[in-house]
């Protein structure tokens, strides 16, 4: 059960998160060095975790909240692996 949320609030949330994702993606593409791209990717994954949580509320599926948990764990491990690669190669 959840309260009724007007349409325009959903639209505002999705638009703001989309703009944030686009900004992080631009940084991940143009970043002068590979480290800058990794920072862009880190921000991107955190924003996407938040987006999954909002999507879980929109579709009202409890299971999507678990998806966002798994996404958070995998992105954490991925960023650690990238940092290790940047420091001393594979």
């Amino acid at each position: 059960m959840r309260i009724e949320i007007p349409q325009f609030i959903w639209i505002a949330w999705f638009v703001i998160v989309s703009i944030a994702t686009i900004l992080a993606t631009i940084r991940a593409i143009i970043g002068p060095t590979n480290s800058d791209r990794a920072v862009g990717l880190d921000t991107w994954t955190t924003i996407t975790t938040g987006f999954w949580v909002i999507l879980a509320l929109y579709f009202f599926q409890y299971i999507l909240l678990s998806v966002s948990m798994v996404y958070a764990i995998l992105s954490f491990l991925g960023v650690l692996a990238i940092a290790r690669y940047l420091e001393r190669g594979l």
Partner: peptide, 24 residues
């Protein structure tokens, strides 16, 4: 709803900071 608005706004600010600031 207010908390989600604050959260979404700060997600946007984080991305804007990553986009604008001068070094890594």
């Amino acid at each position: 709803v207010v908390l989600v608005f604050i959260g979404v706004f700060f997600l946007f600010l984080g991305a804007l900071g990553v986009f604008r600031l001068p070094d890594l």
